[in-house]
Amino acid sequence: MSAHAHSEDGHSNDGHDFAHPMSVQTLLLVFFALTFLTIVTVAQSNFDFGAFEVAVVMLIATIKAILVMAFFMHLIADKPFNAIIFIGSFVFVGLFVIFTLGDSMMTSGSFEPEVDLMAPAVAEPMEVRVDGAP
């Protein structure tokens, strides 16, 4: 491959090959690992982990995400700067979610739309009817 690269690079000022193709074996292994983890995450939903359920689910999803990022997205062979930028975004996502969640826990009661708060007005005529019955 490098010999081939050399012969074609002769006319350009680029001396080396910058493509790093992933081997088919790696790709298939990662795919099967991801499929296996999907089965695991579906299977775990049949067991009751109580309060840890969200943690278990997020852990499995994060392992899958790391596999995708490292191999499918080539971060393992990529320039570290790209990985820093991308992983850095998750730091800000974490800050965003934690602060907003914390704020909502401390201040807000419920954000539910008041679509059926109209109901007492509907119930009133019925009350009159029941009153009039006996």
Binding site: S45, E53, V57, I60, A61
Partner: peptide, 15 residues
């Protein structure tokens, strides 16, 4: 794909 990896368990697999 990555986003779906998180969406699927968070929406579909709540007991």
């Amino acid at each position: 794909d990555l986003i779906w990896i998180y969406l699927f368990p968070l929406l579909y697999l709540i007991r």
